[in-house]
């Protein structure tokens, strides 16, 4: 068996999600190859070659792949991927955008968001917002899979010395182009890889009050997230949303502040190691998943917590 992992990267660096995906590939077993498709992405390819357990790195360096446009990258992956037993990508917005397109080009029914590998053709995945876990077996020759990164411990980023091979395929579907992006700039860790995450909900009342959480986060080296209610209310931007339709996080410590605990929010954070809930409503469902619940007004509790840390 040989497995093709599609690297998530920004042309300069490999993103952490790639390491979790390599870990899933190891759980399947077989030769692991990584595809780095990008533009001027030599540095990312070199980093990929150092990941422990990787046998080969394929680099497709072309302007058409610079922004990971699904139309172009999917063609490339389909060109390369047919002979592999498995094609894996992280279940990030980039992976979810591109991989089903690859699957359809290969006439394969993809398997989204796997949580566990049962065997080479059988996987566990969440359905119904994580309220049910399905065990799914694929009969396709090539398995096309996205990996829920929080479910697999990251592979070691250093120590490997894979061969780097250039792929000279320039795919340009000619139907899409990149216009621009607005990416959040922050000195805090990334939500999906932070060891500590503090999230605010509707109880925060407005965007300015999130400042309290940022202060607390800076003391704890934490990332700041939000519930869908807080995002929909316009308190904070969408990239902060934790939940079934936002980001899935599983930090060592998750602090939910003024979050009631809707099912769709719980689906995004319930695999955290320790959950703390601060809410003045003692009936809030969030307390049913919290290891430590503090029934208190967040506007008293959060500043007190920050001062005492």
């Amino acid at each position: 068996m040989s497995i093709l992992v599609i690297a998530e990267h920004d042309n300069a660096e490999i993103k952490g999600a790639t390491l979790n995906t390599v870990a899933a590939a190891k759980a399947i077993g077989g030769d692991i190859h990584i595809l780095v498709a990008g533009a001027e992405c030599g540095a990312a390819a070199e980093a990929a070659a150092r990941i422990d357990g990787v046998a080969k790195v394929l680099v497709a360096d072309n302007a058409g792949y610079e922004h990971q446009l699904a139309e172009n990258v999917a063609k490339l992956v389909a060109d390369l991927g047919g002979d592999y037993s498995h094609i894996l990508a992280p279940a990030t917005t980039t992976g979810k955008n591109m991989l089903p397109r690859v699957a359809a080009l290969l006439d394969v029914q993809p398997i989204s968001d796997i949580l566990a590998v049962e065997s080479a053709d059988t996987f566990k995945r969440p359905i119904y917002a994580g309220n049910v876990i399905a065990t799914v077996q694929s009969s396709d020759t090539t398995k096309v899979i996205t990996v829920r990164t929080t479910a697999f411990d990251a592979a070691v980023a250093e120590g490997g010395s894979a061969a780097v091979e250039t792929v000279d395929i320039a795919e340009d579907a000619g139907v899409s182009s990149f216009v621009g992006e607005e990416l959040a700039v922050s000195d805090r860790p990334e939500l999906t890889s932070a060891k500590v995450v503090i999230s605010g909900g509707r109880g925060m009342q407005n965007g300015d009050n999130f400042e309290m959480l940022y202060k607390l986060a800076d003391k704890l080296g934490a990332a700041v997230g939000a519930s869908r209610a807080a995002v929909d209310a316009g308190f904070v931007p969408n990239d902060m949303q934790v939940g079934q339709t936002g980001k899935i996080v599983a930090p060592d410590l998750y602090i939910a502040v003024g979050i009631s605990g809707a099912i769709q929010h719980l689906a995004g954070m319930k695999d955290s190691k320790v959950i703390v809930a601060i809410n003045k409503d003692e009936e809030a469902p969030i307390f049913s998943v919290a290891d430590y619940g503090l029934v208190a007004d967040l506007f008293d509790a959060v500043p007190e917590l920050e001062t005492k840390l």
Partner: peptide, 13 residues
Amino acid sequence: REVDGGLQTVSLK
């Protein structure tokens, strides 16, 4: 588009 880092805009034929 809502992407992990924020927003991305693409133009499609």
